[in-house]
Design a protein around this nucleic acid. Structure first.
Lengths: 159, 159
DNA sequence: GTATGTGCAAAACGTTTGCAAGTTC
DNA sequence: GAACTTGCAAACGTTTTGCACATAC
């Protein structure tokens, strides 16, 4: 997962490229938000993004944050996840392959995993049912064995 | 999946039993809503539930509908799913085993499948990562081969 | 009779949008 | 300068809640 932070300038080039292709103008807000996203290794929420900017004294309006998120989803530079809370989680995609998630129902820790056998099984099952697979999200809610017993704050809410 | 409609009185007994155990009182509204849920074979939304009652001339307030849903989730009689829309989908659990879903990104059709190999692989992967699996949701977004090309209305929104 | 459940309308939540002012190309 | 982007505050759609009234046990 650490290769995700590898090379921000390459990721920014990718952004610029796709923005041009899709007739998006370059603005300081878009650049700064995208950079923050490419630098962020964890799964983040829009609220976390905006708060983090505020803490650093930079100002981004929520509206712009949400709009940049939409743009980056469209440009396939980030992915959206529902982990059973009422807000969404995001993560950037360049630099790491498709993966699934295990969410600790006690502490909220999110870990990523990817398993080739699992992927081909998904593909096979989808075909067998007469579909062409486009996207797939597997989230496993679990208890982590190392999680201190007082950290009972996450709790699944939806699915 | 058709065994789901098999025996509503058995499912209602289960409801009554768990309601008593959890100190919920029996009311006509709870009974009627639960019956509707046990009789419903598709994945439904709260809005669909309320509309359906209205159409039949029966009245249920939205508030009560949401409250019964919460109760039944707690009693483990229904499951909640996020299929990428801004509202949740529900389905009752008695009478059918755990399964995963394929959602057609064109027409919104939801099909269920269950695969033993997939289940044990999930379990194995979870353990390997140091977790104890509690719940897991796999949703595959796909195109169905039989879907008429004009039915492009569903579209994933989140994940 | 007391605790619990219901219905309404209002609130709450994350997210989206209309619009006037500011930027980009 | 035409088209697009921003920020604000207001609107949105789903879900939750406060409260007065009604019902269950």
């Amino acid at each position: 997962m650490e290769q995700r932070s590898a090379n921000i300038s390459r990721e920014m080039s990718l952004l610029k490229e796709r923005m041009q292709q899709n007739h998006y103008k370059s603005t300081p807000q878009r650049d700064e938000i995208a950079e923050w996203i490419f630098r962020t290794h964890e799964h983040f929420t829009v609220d976390a993004l905006v708060s983090n900017f505020r803490e650093q004294g930079k100002k981004v309006s929520q509206a712009t944050a949400y709009r940049v998120i939409q743009m980056m989803l469209e440009l396939k530079l980030i992915e959206e996840h529902d982990f059973g809370k009422d807000y969404k989680f995001y993560e950037h995609t360049p630099g790491h392959e498709h993966h699934d998630h295990i969410v600790c129902i006690d502490c909220g820790k999110i870990i990523e995993f990817s398993d080739q056998g699992l992927e081909s099984l998904k593909e096979k099952i989808t075909l067998k049912n007469g579909f062409r697979m486009k996207e797939h999200h597997l989230t496993i809610y679990a208890e982590c064995t190392t999680c201190p017993p007082d950290k009972k704050g996450f709790k699944k809410k939806g699915a």
